[in-house]
Nucleic acid binder design. Structure first.
Lengths: 209, 209
DNA sequence: AAAAATCTGTTGCAAAAGCAACAGAAAAGT
DNA sequence: ACTTTTCTGTTGCTTTTGCAACAGATTTTT
């Protein structure tokens, strides 16, 4: 599906349908907290945001990183008491809030946008599955080095370039890859020393192959 | 959605629609290999199966474990050349094969089952997302011990009991949790010695809380 | 029933990751 | 422009993980 289409759908949907909210968030604000049974689906219309989890030890994990038109929300989660999950704006963001159950049933005004969004939603969810699978692939790598290389090659592929900007600070990158920051820094240094990568600020360039 | 309904839908769909295949597999047979652009969606109708990945180092990972009515298939994946992904039957299995694109468009006979399956499919995909998110939660745990405890409490919750049967051999469990087998065995021993769990064969009982 | 293959449990040693702490750089807030 | 906060880069030390190897138990195959 074309991203522009999503945008148009959202615009139309918003105009015709109740149960849809659009909100603006400033940098660092909390967009939503994952609370069970809300059935919440969110679409990021502009900006960037992270889904963050703190577990019972206080360990922070960046579970996902969201860009324009990514969907997120508590419907996708089994909420347990051991975790606190919330989405934080990394820049100013616009977000559409929907209720999943209300999508499945027709709305009162029987609007055609309802059906359209419904169809598109399954496409968006499918995209989410592929994203999550890539994430799992990263996390199952056995070493910090393999995680770094794996993540870099994802970014490289996505940017169609050997050079790309990291969407995270290094501190956050460690939380995303689920590794110790100091160990990651060490590995990053080795990768540079061994000539695998180049790094200037938050721009990384792959030198291999 | 009720599982029985899925089953009925599948039965009806099969009877009315082309582009649907049902096949039987014996234990240890390969159900499917993930090859790009196939657009394949599979539904496990009976039996159990694992999605297995071998990376370029020959490292084996059990990416997912499938039970009755789980869906899987290459549509959910971005296939890279570094990986070999396939699904292996752990017992005799029955599997329905669909082509994702053909689901989105109406079939020639314009059958009502098409639409029904389509709707249900989005529900099934949503379920998949929640499963994958639980998996990510497991994999982001920092120690082998936390992974074991986390996995055990998932099984315990799912079985509504402090006791449950592991669906894996210990060798496979290590590949599923993405840890070294010997390290896992050590940790398992400590958990037993410290009185957190009990283990008889492949039945584990949680003793805490 | 015997042979082959796989799985479990264990160990010693090597390598990697985690922890804590700190100083300088950079960014954000006032 | 100055202050405060966060981020980067680094290190010494400890703990955990990974590797390789092996023997006995269990399961599967012939």
């Amino acid at each position: 599906m074309d991203l522009l289409n999503v945008s148009n759908f959202i615009k139309d949907y918003e105009d015709h349908c109740s149960k849809v909210q659009r909100k603006h968030f400033k940098k660092n604000e909390t967009i939503t907290t994952y609370i069970a049974k809300r059935n919440q689906v969110c679409i990021l219309v502009s900006g960037e945001a992270d889904l963050i989890r703190y577990d019972y030890n206080g360990n922070k994990t960046i579970v996902e990183h969201f860009n324009k038109y990514d969907i997120f929300g508590e419907v996708f989660y089994i909420i347990t008491t051991n975790n606190e999950l919330f989405v934080r704006a990394k820049q100013d963001c616009d977000v559409i809030f929907l209720v999943y159950d209300s999508l499945k049933h027709k709305c009162k005004s029987n609007c055609k946008f309802h059906q359209s969004l419904n169809e598109n939603l399954s496409e968006l969810i499918l995209q989410k599955v592929t994203t999550l699978n890539s994430r799992i692939e990263l996390l199952t790598k056995h070493s910090t080095r393999d995680k770094l290389i794996g993540y870099f090659s994802i970014l490289s592929t996505r940017n169609l370039s050997k050079s790309f900007k990291l969407p995270f600070s290094l501190t956050d990158l460690a939380d995303y890859l689920s590794v110790d920051r100091s160990a990651m820094m060490r590995e990053l240094k080795s990768l540079r020393d061994e000539g695998f990568i180049e790094k200037n600020g938050n721009v990384v360039t792959l030198l291999y192959k």
